[in-house]
Computed example of a mutant assay.
Amino acid sequence: MTPAMNGAHPYRSTLIVLAIFLGCGVLAFATASGEDIWHQITLLSLTQIGILLALSLVNYTFRALRWFLYGRALGLDLGVLQVLRHYLGGFALTMTPGRLGELVRVRWINRETGASVERTAPLVLVDRAADLASSGLLLAAAMLVMAGGISGGIPVAIIAILAAIVATRPTLFRWCVTMLFKLIGRKPRLFARARRAAQSLKPFSQPAIALPAFALGFLGWFAEGYAFYLLLDWMGASLPVWTCVGIFVFAMMTGGATGLPGGVGGAEAAMLALLSLQGVPLEIALPATAIIRITTLWFAIGLGVLIFPIAETAAARRPHALENR
């Protein structure tokens, strides 16, 4: 681990993250007709841009509150503002491979609370599972309401929901791991670790935790889908709200399935294709896709870049917690 990541030079880490952020942003604009995008942005009022950013902030905040619930389920002594700092700061590393943003959140918790890695590691898995469950059900709801649906939407929603159920039910997770090991018959240590991870998910499966956590994720992702609906309406491409929500969620899940940081590339391609199928002309679909990604993905990264050094500094003040790692 580098000295910066150890807390000695938090601002150096931030500068690296900022360079990645700016480089990817320039590349995105260069490959997506930047002049048309900026022209469309100038047609939006400051109030409209503020509404889009506010709805994205609703998503980030609700998901951070879900992280707070999960931390309480593990018995971690974390305050709401502390969790917001961790969750938003982790967005700074969204464009790095290996989901480092999620790992750095756990690292900050370990340093500030003294909890061991084994105790806090399940937070990453259950947070991903909760996103799968909420976005999967949100997509399924959109499919039920939409007249034509989205090609492939129902299978994607079903797979996401099933994966989330398995990942959040310890007994079912262990059974699947056991069956998979019997099928493959290799890597016994890897499967043993997977079974231990399944057992560590038990605190999150209680209804008092699972239900509000699911509701927070569902409402959070709906807020960004609704922002997409408003944006298209302002740009003159009026589509039903659930159609916009379905397109947005499906595109996010498609981007996530590519494994690329932030789903860059896959999410945009899926969104453009689905808007085209809905009859939205390219001169609207292209800037709308870019603007919604700027006000969701890149806005999150921008917030993360601002908060990252604050989180690093706060964590560096409690190095004694490393003794338990």
Rank of each mutant, 00 (worst) to 15 (best):
M1I: 06
A4G: 14
H9N: 12
L15C: 07
A19Y: 09
G25H: 08
A28L: 15
S33T: 15
W38I: 10
I41R: 07
I51H: 01
L52V: 06
L57Q: 12
F62N: 06
R72L: 10
D77L: 00
V83W: 02
L88F: 15
G89T: 05
G89S: 08
G89K: 09
L93I: 12
M95I: 06
L103V: 14
R105V: 03
R105F: 07
N110M: 15
R111Q: 13
P122A: 02
P122Q: 01
R128E: 06
R128M: 00
D131N: 02
S134K: 13
G136I: 04
A157N: 06
A160L: 13
A163I: 03
C176P: 02
T178K: 09
M179H: 10
R196I: 12
A197F: 14
S200Y: 05
S200K: 12
K202D: 04
P203I: 03
A213Y: 08
F214L: 07
A227Q: 04
Y229P: 05
L230F: 00
G236C: 09
C244K: 08
I247A: 02
A257H: 08
G259P: 03
G265Q: 01
L272N: 09
L274W: 05
L274H: 04
L275C: 10
L275F: 05
L277G: 06
P281D: 07
E283W: 07
A285S: 15
A285L: 09
T296C: 07
F299M: 09
A311S: 13
T313M: 11
R325T: 08
